[in-house]
Write a protein that binds this DNA or RNA. Structure first.
Lengths: 143, 143
DNA sequence: GTAGACCTTGACCCCGGCGTCAAGGCCAGA
DNA sequence: TCTGGCCTTGACGCCGGGGTCAAGGTCTAC
């Protein structure tokens, strides 16, 4: 199978496959005329890469999975190195989710307060006495 | 105040301030010799920018807040455009958190299964009969 | 007058993951 | 034989947010 067919079957582009090859992630055999040549096994490797990438893994993080498959294991995550990547990724995801959650809370609070401030402002505009516009601002999380 | 002092007081760099100026985000007056000149108000604008950036806002998203402050409001989020950015950001955060949460679940499940597969594999290696290595792999989320 | 600490503009570099040309080779069908 | 569709390598571009030179101007202190 040539590069165009593999790309199409995997739902990606030839550019991507050449890029992976340049990283040594998915090397290709060559036919006599210099064309890249792939087989079904390469398709599996490629699918493993694309699947992990869809989950937010960086290309380098997919390498253990690919090498695991290439070394004859039936699944990319049959090897300790792959499990280690899973664990690192889990920790990363947990931390990221927690951080975003904290920010979400602060932004949400901020929005409520700012909306209330505006409501009071409009009420003040309706009423004759103009109270000073209250200050409420997103403050830095501290050093 | 010149650029170096403002940068230091805001905990950033002169390069950053020049970059913001190139975006029209934080324009500077000039003294006779061509040096940039800032005042306390500029420091406030800059702090607003840095605070929002710490919360993951892109520079362009801070623009409404800065313009709100510059137009004389006591807080960057006193204006409707700023509130709109808050709301968009909240929606963005919620979606991102949900997406990461779903991925976290899948990766976590995958890790458990792969660990169990390895445990069975080792048990099989201890026992004389080698059962076929079970396949379990992260599968694509579907088209 | 000269050292050194500031300032100026301009330009290139970085990260990841490709997209998008450009110029040319290889092969099949009419 | 020629056209069209594949393939090859190489090179530049993009995204955001600046880092890091380079070459030169300006001011102050000694």
């Amino acid at each position: 199978m040539r590069i165009g067919e593999l790309a199409e079957r995997a739902g990606t582009t030839t550019r991507t496959l050449r890029y992976y090859e340049s990283l040594g992630l998915l090397p290709a055999r060559r036919t006599g005329n210099g064309y890249r040549s792939y087989d079904e096994e390469d398709l599996r490797l490629l699918q493993q890469i694309r699947t992990l990438r869809d989950f937010g893994f960086e290309l380098e993080e997919t390498r253990p999975f690919v090498e695991c498959l290439r070394s004859g294991h039936p699944a990319g995550d049959s090897c300790p190195a792959s499990l280690e990547v899973y664990r690192r990724k889990l920790a990363e995801l947990d931390e990221c989710i927690a951080r975003l959650g904290a920010i979400r809370e602060r932004v949400g609070t901020q929005l409520i307060q700012a909306e209330r401030a505006r409501a009071e402002l409009e009420a003040a505009a309706t009423a004759p006495e103009g109270a000073p516009e209250p200050r409420c601002e997103l403050t830095p999380p501290g050093p």
